[in-house]
Design a protein around this nucleic acid. Structure first.
Length: 520
RNA sequence: GGCCCCAUCGUCUAGCGGUCUAGGACACCGGCCUUUCACGCCGGUAACACGGGUUCGAGUCCCGUUGGGGUCACCA
């Protein structure tokens, strides 16, 4: 049997980080087994702008490298891959279920159903539909229709016996049929519901393994009933634990951002993201811009491989020490039997740590390619970047070493791309390192003269220059270097001092020192 | 509330009866390095929810309790 898995998102307009984790595991399993990964769009609930709502989802998956063998844009032998275009199949299945006596037309109004349910609750009984408006005979159908009633189609669920699901992750899970409801599979307007469509399409697409999040576990009986009633073979099920909120076991939700913001790490990441968004003129409304949504990471310059690596470890592990994987290694080692059962909460700090690790492995040229678009969006450099600017970017990156963890961080080094006469000075830094310390301005003036006379402006030479100056004047390095840094960058913290000077070059360095001195 | 699932450091996890006085990673706290900030290096704090069994022996198996979570739509 060929392994076929599917990820079936509905077009919600954004890609949820938990959804991605599910997609990733489906994809990994298919790849590991030499099978196929199918993307199907579950748009059974009439949606106006499917294409628009789909873009972030398809884009996000592609960005992460979770590519589908069959699905939107690539098609395949089992299309169409939009449920909304498979309605005939669904309708036929409903007819078949009806013909087999596994489903029935029901003429109850929603109010009547509601009343039954409330009565059961009030009497502390389990609710089971009375099937009072069940119409199995043409006579009854005619009679109810004559009353002006509209019908839905419901599953005629068994009311005795037990269902055992052999879940690949959870083992055997038992359900009593009697507790299952006669779920609606076709609405009054004739359209079909998810559970029916999903079971029918999974069969038609020859899905061998249904891998999905745990929240679907309790939906499984009704799908199994549909599958068995139609005489389809049962796919294997694997219910993944869901991705939980930071520091909690509750399912992560896009709508509870306010709550997550109380988590320090989460809030820090959001702040960092917002600063970057602001600098590049991005809409940072919480609805579309927060760490629950994959686009957030793309927009501020995360590496897809870092996210994939982190997400893979959220619920899966290889052993007691291996943590860093590239995609190929993941495919090579992934298996469902090493997937955990308990929910795993999203830890943005650890995600950032993975990002840092993967960033470290990049060459300066690779980092430059990531970072340049951010500088351009922020209006700091021209697009396309002239060769000399590109060189400067690389020099900055070399000097920055591992300080840039996400591409957008480069915007905190704006001083290298700001004209000398527009460089902003941090007032506190200026005060603390240049104005207040006695002799600081004097020392800076002295060293400025040395710089002005310097023949080469390379880091090593500049370091020697300073040391000589210090020796001559009987000063400590701290007496001058802090003032120098503020003067030249406007900030109290930054890259290596001599690298900084070398990158800026003599004219720029001198101009900045003069400007700073003028403010003392 | 019914049904179902889950339970090792703050977090992600290793552990599939003895090698566990419980290992790794992130975070945290010290220290070193150092011109700031990072990086790096060294060290440290920190967990088997509880109670019964089974067994010579339980983090590991069974039952219960507690706790957490999911789900109960003419949503997906």
């Amino acid at each position: 049997m060929t392994i076929r898995t599917r990820f079936a998102p509905s077009p919600t307009g954004y890609l949820h980080i938990g959804g991605v984790r599910t997609a990733l595991f489906c994809w990994l399993f298919a790849r590991a087994q030499g099978g196929k990964f199918i993307l199907r769009i579950d748009d059974t609930d009439a949606q106006r702008n499917v294409r628009e709502a789909l873009r972030p989802i398809l884009g996000g998956l592609r960005w992460l490298g979770i590519t589908w063998d069959e699905g939107p844009d690539v098609d395949g032998p089992f299309g169409p891959y939009y449920q909304s275009r498979r309605t005939e199949l669904h309708q036929a299945a409903v007819e078949e279920l009806l013909a087999r006596g596994c489903a029935y037309r029901d003429f109850a109004t929603p109010e009547e159903i509601q009343a039954e349910r409330e009565a059961a609750v009030a009497a502390k009984r389990d609710y089971v539909y009375s099937r009072r408006w069940m119409a199995e005979s043409p006579e009854n159908v005619a009679r109810f229709e004559a009353e002006g009633r509209r019908s839905v189609v419901r599953l005629k669920m068994p009311r005795t016996g037990t269902l055992v699901i052999d879940d690949l992750i959870r083992g055997k899970v038992e359900f009593e049929w009697a507790r299952e409801q006669d779920h609606v599979i076709q609405r009054a307007d004739g359209s079909c519901l998810y559970h029916l469509a999903s079971a029918v399409d999974d069969y038609a697409m020859e899905i061998s393994h249904v891998i999905r999040a745990e929240e679907h576990l309790s939906n499984t009986p009704r799908q199994v009933f549909i599958i068995q009633s139609l005489g389809y073979p049962l796919p294997r099920h694997a219910h993944l634990p869901f991705v939980a909120e930071p520091g909690s076991k509750t399912k992560l939700s896009k709508r509870k951002l306010d709550k997550y913001l109380k988590n320090r790490d989460f809030a820090d990441l959001v702040d960092r993201g917002r600063r970057i968004a602001e600098a590049i003129g991005l809409d940072a409304s919480p609805e579309q811009f927060n760490p629950v949504i994959v686009d957030f990471y793309r927009q501020i310059g995360f590496l897809p491989r870092a996210i994939v690596n982190y997400l893979a470890l959220l619920g899966w592990s290889l052993d007691d020490r291996t943590e860093h994987f590239d995609v190929n290694e993941l495919v090579e080692h992934f298996s469902l039997d090493r997937v955990n059962k308990a929910p795993a909460s999203l830890d943005t700090k650890k995600l950032e740590a993975f990002q840092a690790r993967h960033m470290q492995k990049l060459s300066v040229a690779e980092k430059a390619a990531m970072v340049i678009p951010f500088l351009q969006e922020a209006g700091l450099i021209a697009a396309p970047a002239p060769a000399d600017v590109e060189e400067r970017v690389e020099a900055v990156l070399r000097a920055a070493g591992e300080r840039i963890r996400i591409a957008g961080d480069v915007l905190e080094l704006a001083e290298f791309f700001t004209p000398d006469d527009q460089l902003p000075y941090d007032p506190q830094a200026l005060d603390k390192r240049l104005r207040r310390p006695a002799g600081a301005a004097e020392a800076l003036r002295g060293f400025r003269a040395k710089l002005a006379a310097a023949e080469t402006f390379e880091a090593d030479a500049l370091e020697r220059l300073l040391n000589d100056f210090l020796a001559d004047e009987g000063l400590a390095i701290g007496d001058v270097i802090h003032a120098l840094r503020v003067a030249v960058t406007g900030k109290a913290v930054g890259l290596g001092m001599f690298e900084t000077l070398a990158i800026l070059g003599k004219p720029s360095a001198l101009a900045r020192i003069d400007r700073a001195l003028a403010q003392v």
